[in-house]
């Protein structure tokens, strides 16, 4: 059994991004699509921290900090938009939100 290398962390990070992408594609509930976006950002954070640790450089860690800030703000705005849309359309499914269709 080989011991854990940075490669393992990178593969895990790509797995998390892939799972988030899959969720973004196959789910129709916008709440769950937002959660999948969070999962993708988490995978990217793992990769950034791995490179930061391997390269002995703190810049990656600080970028993770900024990504967390942006993700929190994004979730707040996205959920407020979702509530406003729900008041108009009475649904959280992405199929019912084709505002610019037709």
């Amino acid at each position: 059994m080989l011991s854990v290398t940075p490669q393992h962390f990178l593969i895990l990070s790509f797995l998390l991004v892939g799972i988030g992408f899959l969720g973004l594609l196959i789910r129709r509930n916008v709440l769950l699509m937002l959660m999948s976006l969070e999962l993708m950002l988490n995978g990217i954070n793992v990769a950034l921290l791995t490179f930061s640790r391997v390269g002995s450089n703190l810049d990656g860690g600080i970028f993770v900090f900024f990504i967390m800030t942006v993700a929190a703000a994004e979730v707040a705005v996205g959920l407020a938009l979702l509530v406003a849309l729900y008041k108009k359309r009475n649904s959280v499914l992405s199929d019912d939100m084709g505002l610019l269709k037709n």
Binding site: L12, L15, L16, I19, G23, I26, R27, L32, N42
Partner: peptide
């Protein structure tokens, strides 16, 4: 983490 993500999806 991967199992939690898959179950979430």
């Amino acid at each position: 983490s991967v199992g939690g993500g898959l179950s979430m999806v």
